[in-house]
Design a protein around this nucleic acid. Structure first.
Lengths: 169, 169
DNA sequence: TCGTGTGATGTTATACTATAACAATATTAA
DNA sequence: TTAATATTGTTATAGTATAACATCACACGA
């Protein structure tokens, strides 16, 4: 049984190849540990949703998740998906990508960070990177006008290296 | 007739006081000039929507705009608002704020720039600033992984200086 | 162990956001 | 004038998200 190689980096991979099966189980375990440590309950539906996000090569919409839940015998009214997603996002196991109304598993659930997403318009995959302290323009601007930042959204749309190379000219 | 002073900076003001009436007419004229220069048509409904955005102290949702259009005798089916907004956004007269599904007039329609928004969760106003070249983490990250950026979304939620000062403790 | 309070889930209904598709009209350029 | 193109009119529907309230499960102190 050879380790499955993805052409497609996603959650942790920033469009790079990696062993996705391993990456899934690592992050799944990390989530379980973190929940224990913090007294959070990784209930069946929450665990299932996290698993779906981890398995996916691209961000999933709430209704994508909803239909996968239904297919696995979970209740499938919208609040079921949204509640699980809220839990995962609130506790740092997943992120919402505003530009495309979709969700991805977080690649570094243990660390507080401000995620940055690169969204490929061709293969629809998303790479997550992050900065720990907002070094960026955002932070400088905020200081300049006395704005107190609670949460940041930093996303870029474009073409990943692979897709760019595949392009006609 | 004294010039009306806003407590509330918006479009160009980044939460600062400014002469909003003057700021509206300046930006309205800039838009007209730019359209002439570039062979774009600032049709009545497009002009009206831009005026609504400029007048507002906070971002407007598409359906806010739609009802204001209706109140002014324009047709009021959703595509009417969305088309006008698409025109304004595509041509740099307005921006979409992803985090709140809303639109603001651009404060620098003449310059190509990557806007940065600070969204106050208390007064719901938004300040726009910008960087001309993405100095930021985004740009560095993109280079590092060979990602070709077409468009960026950089937004921060939090409290503006005024609202913070007004807070209980 | 028995409440009891809190958090989680079940369910219905509805609100909000956005676009497809095609018809009709206006404008521009040949 | 005509043809091509851009804009507007209109209907219908798709897609995203939450309010509200009922029920259930679990944790913890009495």
């Amino acid at each position: 049984m050879t380790a499955k190689k993805d052409t497609l980096g996603l959650v942790a991979g920033a469009f790079r190849q990696h062993d996705h099966a391993k990456c899934i189980s690592l992050l799944m375990n990390a989530a379980r540990d973190l929940c224990t440590e913090r007294g959070l309950r990784l209930t069946p539906v929450r665990e299932k949703v996290l698993k779906l996000l981890l398995k996916s090569h691209a961000p999933l919409g709430a209704y994508d998740i909803l239909s996968e839940l239904a297919a696995s015998g979970f209740r499938a009214q919208p609040p079921v998906a949204y509640r699980a997603l809220d839990f995962l996002v609130d506790n740092g196991f997943a992120h919402r990508i505003e530009k495309i109304n979709a969700f991805v598993a977080c690649s570094q659930p243990r660390d507080k960070h401000s995620p940055i997403f690169m969204i490929c318009n061709d293969c629809h995959q998303v790479a997550e990177t992050s900065v720990r302290s907002q070094s960026s323009s955002l932070d400088r601007t905020a200081r300049a006008i006395g704005f107190d930042i609670k949460h940041t959204v930093v996303e870029a749309e474009g073409l990943c290296a692979e897709c760019r190379e595949r392009m006609p000219q």
